[in-house]
């Protein structure tokens, strides 16, 4: 087919561009304006420019650093766990999945549930008096840990996130694993390569780019976690489960400090962007 003229292309693409500008561009511009302004709900229609004051407030706020540290720990831990578990499941279950493809549909069910619902569900499941898990642990072992007290709450939210999102990593790894040419495995087997060595020397290196991408996607997702933690335990005693997204939400809507919240959101965006750029560069270098 003959290519259309550039004017025609522009005209045809304009509705989408206008839609994206209105739906994404406008809020982004507004957020940037508020980030550099003194803005509260009372002055939302007439924000006054205050330079970097909001950013100074944010970086001087110990709660911001506490939330950043939580997000970083949570992002790294959950991404590592999900990738490790996902990789194990993909390799271990691959022969079974080849015979019964419907197993994949069952394994990815947790991913389909809204994270907020997952938080609410575990609030019930882990409750000492009505939750099935403490009930059976008590029945079998005579006692049950307090899943949501200060000593265990971090581990609990990490496990909840891992259980929900490991299927995502599993799906990526399974695809990558199945994409490895059969001939490679056959040639290695003919040469007498043992399965463990075959995995580390052939399959794992071939899957590494997928592993790298999965880790970063899961890390970014974990770093900006909100829904399931907020509905399960809220900001936590003393702010101990406050992620950066929860910090921004509470600063914006609970405390009405719109400028400060937007400044924190801009910092979150910049850090996520830099991390992704770094990841991309590392991938390119490796490639």
């Amino acid at each position: 087919m003959k290519p259309k003229s550039s004017i025609e292309n522009a005209v045809l693409a304009s509705p989408l561009v206008i839609f994206l500008l209105a739906m994404l561009g406008f809020p982004v511009v507004l957020s940037v304006i508020y980030g550099f302004s003194e803005a509260r709900f009372e002055t939302i229609a007439s924000p006054t420019f205050n330079g970097l004051a909001n950013f100074r407030q944010v970086v001087a706020d110990p709660a911001f650093w506490q939330a950043s540290w939580f997000s970083l720990r949570f992002g790294v831990t959950t991404a590592l766990l999900q990738c490790a578990l996902g990789l194990f499941l993909a390799v271990y279950l691959a022969p079974l999945v080849r015979r019964h493809a419907w197993i994949v549909a069952i394994l990815i069910i947790p991913m389909v549930v809204a994270p907020a619902m997952v938080g609410l569900m575990y609030r019930l499941v882990l409750h000492e008096f009505v939750g099935p898990l403490p009930y059976y642990l008590n029945l079998i072992f005579g006692s049950s840990p307090s899943f949501l007290n200060i000593a265990n709450v971090f581990k609990t939210v990490v496990i909840v996130e891992t259980l929900q999102w490991t299927p995502f990593a599993f799906l990526l790894f399974l695809t990558a694993y199945e994409a490895i040419p059969k001939e490679m495995r056959e040639a290695a087997a003919v040469d007498g390569t043992r399965p463990w060595r075959m995995f580390w020397r052939i399959e794992f290196p071939l899957m590494f780019p997928t592993l790298f991408a999965a880790f970063f996607v899961r890390f970014i997702d974990g770093f900006r976690v909100f829904d399931n933690i907020y509905t399960l335990v809220g900001p936590g005693p003393g702010g101990s489960t406050t992620s950066l997204s929860i910090y921004i939400y509470e600063t914006f809507l609970r405390r009405g400090e719109i400028g400060k919240a937007m400044a924190a959101a801009i910092l979150l965006f910049i850090s996520a962007f830099l991390l992704l750029a770094l990841a991309q560069q590392m991938m390119r270098r490796r490639g």
Binding site: H127, E128, F129, S146, F147, L148, N149, G234, P237
Partner: peptide
């Protein structure tokens, strides 16, 4: 009070009392 009280609000506290414990 239960060790998980640091995550308790209205619903959790009511469930605890209602259990008879």
């Amino acid at each position: 009070t239960p060790a998980d009280s640091t995550s308790y609000e209205y619903a959790e506290a009511n469930a605890a009392y209602s259990s008879g414990q």
